[in-house]
Amino acid sequence: MLSAAETFFGFIGRNAIRLFKGIHDASLLINNTFYWAFLSPLKGKPIRVKATIYEMVKVGYNSVPIVSVIALFVGIILALQSAYQLKRVGAMIYVANLVGVSLTRELAPILTAIIVAGRSGSSFAAEIGSMKSAEEIDALVTMGINPIRFLVVPKLIAMMVMLPALTMIADFIGILGGFLLSVTELQLNPYNYIQQTMNALVIKDIVTGLIKALAFGIVITIVGAYQGFKVEGGAEEVGRRTTASVVTSIFLVIVFDLFFTMLFYFFA
């Protein structure tokens, strides 16, 4: 029988090895993805344009309705919650500042990322995972077609373009939501509200939000692809990996958000 100490250290050791293997595999995937996305096109192996456009439609265009609705609601909620506090100090016009800044810097990117992680990150994992279990990935390899170039790169490019684009839409619609509530329920002057928003927002707010969105897009793609390629068994594991991809990408999106927010706070 193993002693308690042996069991304990064995547990730590096994998990450490698994963790390091995970990190190693993920960094290999990141390396390869960036190589096939940005370096190999310079060497005459272009990216697949049609597949990229197709992914853009799936990731971006098809997400517009849900992102818009959620952004609209969040804009309204933000305006209401700000008004609740600002009413006491009689500074209702600052609702415009709070809505505009918190949306562009923080809420629009992160909400969009979470929606897209749930919609597209999971579908990346499911698609690649079921291809893995049906030997389609092996088939690509034996045909001399790199699966990362073929499958992951179009998704990466689509995410890098569409997540910032969706974030911009969320910025706009969210602010619109706040505006609609303010000019009706809070009875603020529409012209003043717009003026206040314009004054409150600087380009930097919007740009930092978009930089975050770009990073989140990369995170979601890599996590989805990583979980997909990890599938070894059948349908059951595809499902498990799909769930894992959503949980992991939302977790990592928030970790990266914290990192970027600190970075912008201290250095910008």
Binding site: M131, E135, D138, A139, G144
Partner: peptide
Amino acid sequence: RKRIGVLFQGAALLN
């Protein structure tokens, strides 16, 4: 690889 062709067990066509 250009000189080999493989038929996989489930055919492995891209769906």
